[in-house]
Amino acid sequence: MSRRHVETACLLGPALVVLALLFVVPLARLFSLAFTDPAGPFATFGVLAESAVYRQVMWNTFVVAVIVTALCVLLAWPVAYVLSRLEGVWFGLALYGVLFPFWISVLVRTFSWMLLLERNGPINRLLMATGITEASLALLFNNVGVLVGMIHVLLPYMILPLYGAMVRIDRRLLLASDGLGASLADTFRRIYLPLCVPGLAGGATFVFLLSLGFFITPALLGGSNAITLSMLIASFVNDRLAWSLAAAGSLALLAIVLVLMALTARLLPIERGLFAR
């Protein structure tokens, strides 16, 4: 080994050793517990797959993630578009509006929503005062609260990659399409939308994956009938001390995340999606 190699090893070594000891080894040890059930090495996965309750939890997690992703795409679109056209002070202001929530603890933001969505909270009182609803609505401790809270946290992850794709679009392509007689809808469908796809796919994947593993918001805003996989894993550990089931659930969650990431990595370079933050 040359001297340069020794130096490089000294630079990378400490972080790699710490990462191995505090991340890779603990994960491997946890996952190995999934195969230690007395009933057989794969019994835990059987329990998770066969129980109606657990299947319901998986289904709920999936449905919530799909709805959150779809609504994030819808809400992110106008913001990303306007960001891509704004300049100067207004651009800075709008961008801060997107970046600022990243800095506020998810716990604090979730707590804010608890205050706003309460039975007797300002949103319910506003709805009743304006006559939109007769009685106060149950907006908390069910999937409504979970969806609102999760969209609030995850929306910036959708806006930023989408904005990144939109701002890179060469306006001359749109002019050319217009000049050649295409209608606005045609230009959107055949030129603009396809050029947005990398940002759209990157953002949607990110939001979907984060939704699948989301914990704080569903745990506080969700009810006993809106349990997600991450809440189930936590309850295996804290309430039932069922480590092998917690391990199997964690392994399943990570496997889904990695498979979905590998699939989108074929569509676009994942690193770009990450650095777009």
Binding site: L27, L209, G213, F215, S230, I233, A234, S250, L253, L254
Partner: peptide, 10 residues
């Protein structure tokens, strides 16, 4: 990339 709940339990 690993969901924090998984890292936390591990």
């Amino acid at each position: 990339i690993v969901p924090v709940i998984v890292t936390a339990v591990a």
